[in-house]
């Protein structure tokens, strides 16, 4: 079953990694790339969060998974490419 559509990370992969390493959500994201895809984690962020917290307690001092700038994908040409470096 696919949890992260953009990176095609399956539920089995996530649970196995979470149990093996006892990861926090951010670590689970770093290990499996779930949440790093083109959509910025919009589809799978909550699922990755809850899968990680099914095996380890929530550590409130840790930063949670959140939307990272750029909020929407942006091309380098828009950031200052030839022609629109206004």
């Amino acid at each position: 079953m696919i949890i992260c559509r953009c990176e095609e990370v399956t539920y089995g992969e996530l649970v196995e990694t979470a149990d093996k390493y006892g990861c926090s959500p951010r670590e689970l994201k770093l290990r499996t790339r779930a949440g790093m895809g083109y959509c910025g984690g919009r589809t799978c962020r909550n699922a990755v969060d809850s899968i990680a917290h099914s095996s380890t307690k929530r550590d409130v001092s840790q930063i949670t998974l959140k939307y990272q700038p750029p909020i929407r994908p942006i091309s380098f040409s828009k950031l200052g490419g030839v022609g629109n470096n206004d």
Binding site: R5, Y38, C39, R42, T43
Partner: peptide, 8 residues
């Protein structure tokens, strides 16, 4: 509705 970018 423009969130997931699957249709890019």
């Amino acid at each position: 509705i423009g969130h997931c970018f699957e249709c890019r």
